[in-house]
Simulated assay, not measured.
Amino acid sequence: MRIALITPDPAHPLLAATTALLAPRHTVTAIDPRRATKAGRGPASPLADVYLLKSRTPQALALAHDLERRGARVVNGAAATALLQDRTAMAERALAAGLPFAATRTHASLTELAAGPPLPGPVVVKSRRSAKDDLVARVDSAARLRELAAARPDAREPVVVQDFAPNDGWDHKVWAIEDRLFAARRRSELAEPVAAVGPAGPPQPGRGPTVPLGADQLPSGWAELTRRVREVFGLDVYGVDFVEVVGRDGRGTPLIVDINAFPGIREQPGAPEALAALALGNGRA
Rank of each mutant, 00 (worst) to 15 (best):
E244N: 15
P263E: 09
F233T: 01
Q268F: 13
V232P: 03
F262T: 13
G234N: 01
P263S: 07
G221E: 04
G234T: 04
P254T: 11
P269E: 07
A223S: 14
V237E: 08
G221K: 11
F233Q: 01
W222Q: 11
V246E: 06
R228Q: 15
D241S: 12
D236F: 04
L235E: 01
P254Q: 08
L255I: 06
A223P: 02
A261S: 15
V240A: 01
R227I: 03
R248Y: 10
V246M: 01
V229M: 02
N260E: 14
G247H: 06
A223G: 13
D241K: 08
G234K: 00
V240C: 00
R227H: 15
W222H: 12
N260W: 07
R230Q: 14
L235F: 06
Q268W: 07
V257Q: 05
R248T: 13
A223H: 05
R230M: 04
T253W: 07
D236E: 15
F262Q: 12
P269L: 04
G239E: 02
V245Y: 10
A261C: 15
V229Y: 01
Q268R: 14
N260M: 10
G234W: 00
F233I: 01
D241F: 12
V245D: 09
Q268P: 04
R227G: 04
R230N: 06
G247S: 09
